[in-house]
Nucleic acid binder design. Structure first.
Length: 476
RNA sequence: GGCGGCGUAGCCAAGUGGUUAAGGCGGAGGUCUGCAAAACCUCUAUUCAGCGGUUCGAAUCCGCUCGCCGCCUCCA
């Protein structure tokens, strides 16, 4: 069974057939770097991170490009506000973006091109469009002439007449048609600009993605993604530019993720600030955030709920408990496989369910269902091992499978789990109390043992008595 | 006005024509434990916003009603 992807262009699920067998070339619209990234950016980045990981899991050689828009009105405004250069703003927020993404375990792109570093490519593309009669120059501005590209509107399901009727575009006498969009904007005083055949200026927003994706992935490639808000006009314009110039189909599969909503709360600046990735990661385990965000299908809107992340964290603990147990067993040396009590068959079944779910348009909620069923089965196996019925080797193999599929979702990555730094003095005190309690229990002085446990509880320490001794952790 | 989406258990969320409506969180009972914790087991939607219709059969298709949301302008 092969991978099927919902293609925004056709509005249906289609079998994924890359242009080059065994390879998947994908371009994802990144961010305009003028501010700290928020939960919505996190969702989008996460969705495409998982798609990329899954393609790799399926054996494709993935070429993944994600751009930075680093020239734009918002950047210029911000720079003016702060009295610094646009470049300083964009560099700052590129660094912030990368830090935020790393904190979420989102892998960096193979290429992360910046618009300002591809001005020549954009100019060349605009020249091709002019040469083909699809664009025109007016006083140093260049516009794409939408009426010359009849399929404009196909991606967003609009027709040219409706666009004209509903056009709320600012009146601009220089355009031949209100629907036309800027490829190149002539320089205004105090704004960054580059020389061009039409005079100094800067690129329009849409041209960068066409130019950069074609440069790194070719004139036709497999997957182009972004938030659903980009369908119109951004991606519509990208298609017009790319196909207008090359005469070839631009992208085979368009993938768009749904939004994160905040209920009736306005997307006000103050609220927006509380929902930055930075803020959330400070309060929550990043893998719990991944688990939470992946619990809703990527095309569905997601109503943000802070408490949901805490719930996800509790679920994640179950998975981590298995990893910890496997680590403990593995530390004792390679165990013999031992009886598997049907474990292998069931592991295989769950893995296959995982794959079927992911093959169906990256259905991560369903895939997580398979993962949690697998985890429950492994917990049983864990009990079997400690009771001497099941083989430790079989258990370890099973946990290995769990890790393999979890990591496709970026879970159980092995990054600093949840152990916060504990200062040595506190740690020594905790361990001595734990030891004293062990002694008390051995002496069957349970009153004393319970007293010590209560004392540890005051210190925020949770105990777990196992057949191999007592483990403890600091409550989060 | 145009285009699109959503309404499934206490909460979150899959499922989109046919054996028991996934999974997570929460809750109840049980096993284990000196007691806990963790884990596991059992239970927690005769029912899928409402009303009609199509069908041998619908949460799933069609129509209407109610409620909510996104895009059409910068936006992940």
């Amino acid at each position: 069974m092969g991978l099927r992807i919902f293609n925004s262009l056709t509005r249906r699920k289609e079998e994924f057939t890359p242009l080059t067998p065994g390879e998947a070339r994908m371009y994802v619209c990144g961010v305009t770097v003028y501010d700290i990234s928020h939960i919505g950016h996190a969702r989008s980045a996460l969705v495409f991170d998982v798609i990329r990981r899954y393609l790799r899991f399926k054996g494709y050689r993935v070429q993944f490009v994600k751009n930075f828009t680093d020239v734009d009105d918002k950047i210029i405004n911000r720079a003016a506000q702060e009295g610094v250069s646009s470049q300083e703003i964009s560099e700052r927020y590129i660094a912030e973006y990368r830090a935020d993404m790393a904190s979420l375990g989102v892998l960096p792109g193979d290429v992360e091109p910046k618009a300002t570093e591809h001005i020549p490519q954009m100019i060349a593309l605009i020249q091709r469009l002019i040469a083909k009669g699809l664009a025109y120059v007016v006083h140093g501005d260049v516009y794409f002439e939408v009426r010359r590209f009849p399929t404009y509107g196909r991606l967003s399901g609009k027709n040219l007449e409706d666009l004209l009727a509903g056009a709320r575009v600012e009146v601009d006498d220089r355009k031949r048609d209100p629907r036309d969009f800027a490829l190149w904007k002539s320089a205004k005083p105090g704004e960054p600009s580059w020389p061009s055949p039409w005079g100094a200026g800067r690129p329009g927003w849409h041209i960068e993605c066409s130019a950069m994706s074609m440069q790194y992935l070719g004139e036709s490639f497999d997957i182009h993604g972004g938030g659903e808000d980009l369908i119109f006009p951004h991606h519509e314009c990208e298609i017009a530019q790319a196909e207008g110039a090359s005469g070839k189909p631009f992208v085979r599969y368009w993938i768009h993720n749904g939004f994160v909503n905040f209920g009736d709360e306005k997307m006000s600046k103050s609220l927006g600030n509380t929902l930055t990735i930075r803020d959330l990661v400070a309060r929550h385990d990043p893998e719990a955030m991944r688990l939470y965000l992946l619990g809703t299908h990527y095309r569905h809107p997601l109503e943000f709920g802070d408490e949901r992340i805490g719930e996800a964290a509790r679920a994640l603990e179950r998975l981590r408990g298995l990893r910890a147990e496997a680590d403990r067993l593995a530390a004792k040396g390679t165990p013999p496989p031992g009886p598997d009590l049907g474990l292998f068959d069931e592991v295989t079944q769950h893995r296959s369910r995982f794959e079927t779910a992911m093959d169906d348009d990256f259905n991560t909620p369903q895939a997580l269902g398979a993962i949690f069923d697998l985890a429950r089965r492994l917990q049983t196996a864990r009990t079997d091992v400690s009771d001497g019925r099941g083989g430790a080797g079989a258990f370890l193999v099973g946990v290995g499978e769990l890790m393999t599929v979890s990591r496709v979702l970026g879970l159980l990555e092995g990054r600093a789990p949840d152990a916060p730094e504990i200062d040595p003095a506190r740690k020594a005190r905790i361990e001595s109390l734990v030891w004293l309690r062990q002694e008390a229990r051995r002496a069957r002085d349970f009153a004393e043992a319970d007293r010590l446990r209560a004392e540890l509880d005051q210190l925020g320490v949770v105990l777990e008595d196992t057949r191999d001794g007592t483990t403890w952790k600091v409550r989060r």
